[in-house]
Design a protein around this nucleic acid. Sequence first.
DNA 1: CCGCATCCGGGGCGATACTG
DNA 2: CAGTATCGCCCCGGATGCGG
Lengths: 215, 215
Amino acid sequence: MRSYGQYCALAKALDVVGDRWTMLIVRELLLRGPSRYTDLRNGLPGIATNLLAERLRDLERAGVITREQAPPPIATNIFRLTERGEALRPVLDALGRWGVPYMEEGPAPGDEFRERWLAWPAELFLEDREPELPPVAIELWVGEEPMVLRTAGGEVHAQVGRAERPDAVLRGTPHVILGVLSGQLELDQARERGLVLEGDERALERVQPQAAPAL
Amino acid sequence: MRSYGQYCALAKALDVVGDRWTMLIVRELLLRGPSRYTDLRNGLPGIATNLLAERLRDLERAGVITREQAPPPIATNIFRLTERGEALRPVLDALGRWGVPYMEEGPAPGDEFRERWLAWPAELFLEDREPELPPVAIELWVGEEPMVLRTAGGEVHAQVGRAERPDAVLRGTPHVILGVLSGQLELDQARERGLVLEGDERALERVQPQAAPAL
DNA sequence: CCGCATCCGGGGCGATACTG
DNA sequence: CAGTATCGCCCCGGATGCGG
């Protein structure tokens, strides 16, 4: 990116991560951990391949990510965030939180969706309000790939995958699931909009925000 | 900006404020409060006039700013952040904080500078560690325009202008002043690099961070 | 299949000129 | 003062090719 040419911390930050797609690449690396080129590309629907390659080069030069050659049998590179790159998490948290209201309207026609993108609102909004009880696991089915929410140390962690014995299973559209996770939708309302909840309803209530956070 | 076409809070946020110059326009409105077109332009060295006009239109349509017609005698518009726009402050705070390390190297050749941009690191790093004492005011001279730091309620507020009877006056380059404010530079080191401190040194020490924050 | 490089059309960007 | 108009250029997006 062309530098803004301003001696200002914000402008300098934007010189590094202000380019189109750059923040979203960081999002993928934060959500997935170290990733291969193809995995990144899969998590970034719409990006042109040359742009991804160019951004990865830029980010590497800027010290935000590193590129590791996997050992010879595997002919692939692994991209991973440096400490400096991980330090961008508060930035993406803030931006993601600011963007949540735009999710309420539901996906625009043609919008792509990846299950793991839900990890953001999930970890942002949910908390384990009864950490002294045994941990619970909630499975989410919102597309092809299942996700699982687990309580641990008062927090809730989200990741792609299944639970062995989930306390509850939620199925629904991204829009409805997000409404439930963010506390914008009551369970009754959500059910009217197609939410299916199997298992222990209390597991869900345990992690939902008490009051709907102001968006 | 072209939409990313992703049903993701972060991508949706970037659809609105991810365009080039957009965040910096919000920076100016946060730092200055409601502003005229020309004032914005002055605080955004390097921006093309048509781009500023276009971004202001976009931000207005997105509900981030409003445009008010000033009463007839003054034939000018006033742009001001909406509540939604003010809600971007945590985002810019996080990004600005992430960008501070790039300031340590000093300005790049040709970098523009505005005194008020210092308000960011100032309010971010400084705190009144002795709020029970009478408030102090510190004047900063780093360019044409003076700035003043005032303690109030345990916090430190920065704004353009002078103090009537400053407890201390600091003069130096942006780079050195920033080093002092962020706690990266000891006073001795700063003096070697051209810092001039008049008045009560304790006023400065009172608001400096105790330990240099990890950048 | 993975990780790009190349090519090309369109649009956003930057600089300057101009207008009410 | 507060923008609009214009124009060249480069960046972006999409498609394709290609070596390992």
